[in-house]
Design a protein around this nucleic acid. Structure first.
Lengths: 219, 219
DNA sequence: CTAATAGTGTCTCTGAGACACTATCTA
DNA sequence: TAGATAGTGTCTCAGAGACACTATTAG
């Protein structure tokens, strides 16, 4: 009979774009260890749920969102990552629109808050390492998939799409070349509506042709 | 106090190139469930080892190789993946040269054998699914990294390098364009030695400039 | 009118891929 | 000599990226 003394957890890295910056949801730890410190939302995996289901549950509890994009990132197993004993955690990245997030929805009194990824507080456990991994993966995936759609509203202008890339990659690409590239890729189509965003020519609204995840070289 | 009834295992997908085909190491199951069926090598994670260490140990036991390239792939957690009860497994891919493999090295009497990936027997558990995932990842990584070096001997001809891609991707790229591309990437250098491989002009031997894993767009 | 962004067009350079040619070995 | 692979070169086309110009709005 096998006897293991290993506990399995999941952690969620919930990304969203808000106030012109890439933000991540962090909870406040109410108990030791790392009491009052910020940490990634997460918890123990139940005996009768998959890792995906566990993350889905955690994400829903913290944000109220139940249709976020979820992707498994990596499983962290360092021996000393939790002072309470041996814990292995499987990290998942979640992408959602900030408008969909309702921080009050959480039944947990975890004081969940969004933080810009370049203004982070100190994090509990090895969560800084996990978060860095997630940021890398996010950038990587935005380059060659249409995942950016999960960070945008249903319809959006090409400039808003452009801005997500500008924000995440912290560099300004040529907006003219970017727009041309997107249009040529055939992943968005005009809704037919125009919107006035300021004192200038109105912009066409677009939507993604397919909500599915597809391989598309964007950058 | 948390009580989980989940067991954590690792599985290794050990790839090598042999007899002009991509092969994977499979063991024979000696006990139920799936008795006598082929399966990926793997086993329980010990309380005091990381996932990497667990895979390293398994790989070493089956092949005698202790310097293989290892990469974590994905953690599989379907509820019914093991009829004995709840098991979560973390899959790792290993790359090694077939010359380095010593199947007798295994202290386990598992009857380990290499199988070409397109002539596979039926596999136990969800190992077919795991293996398919690994093959995808291997192809993907060979496209944009220098990982191919772990499948080749220290020094090799450009044709031998080319053949690995031919074999793995099951299509013939233009060998002339391929060689030009490789040389331009500056990831290999001539050793100065030439070798006669048949009834034709001898070929220059090359070696990889860096043994480290680097991002290089090869295809 | 001006300021600001929307939207389209032009130019250049690089690189992918199709394909030709010469070099060097053994039988 | 022939047959095979090694190694280098040429050509064309597509796409990335720098940059110019016109369109449309509010004030």
């Amino acid at each position: 009979m096998i006897q293991q003394h290993i506990l399995m957890t999941v952690d969620g890295i919930i990304f969203t774009i808000k106030d012109q910056s890439l933000q991540v949801l962090l909870i406040e730890r109410l108990l030791p260890p790392f009491e009052h410190m910020r940490a990634l939302p997460g918890g123990y995996v139940l005996d009768n749920e998959t890792l995906e289901q566990a993350v889905y549950r955690e994400v829903q509890e913290e944000t109220g969102v139940n249709n976020a994009y979820l992707e498994q990132l990596y499983t962290f197993s360092d021996l000393d990552r939790d002072p309470r004993g041996r814990h292995i955690t499987c990290a998942y990245m979640a992408l959602m629109r900030s408008d969909d997030i309702d921080l009050q929805a959480g039944s947990d009194a975890t004081n969940a808050k969004l933080f810009p990824v370049n203004q982070l507080p100190e994090l509990a456990f090895d969560h800084k390492k996990i978060l860095n991994y997630a940021i890398q993966r996010l950038k990587y995936k935005l380059e060659y998939t249409n995942l950016v759609q999960y960070l945008l509203p249903e319809s959006f202008t090409l400039t808003e799409l452009y801005q997500v890339y500008d924000i995440v990659f912290q560099q300004d690409f040529d907006i003219r070349n970017f727009k041309k590239k997107i249009l040529k890729l055939n992943i968005v189509e005009p809704t037919g509506e125009k919107v006035v965003r300021g004192v200038h020519r109105p912009a066409m609204l677009y939507k993604f042709i397919t909500p599915d995840t597809a391989i598309v070289e964007i950058l």
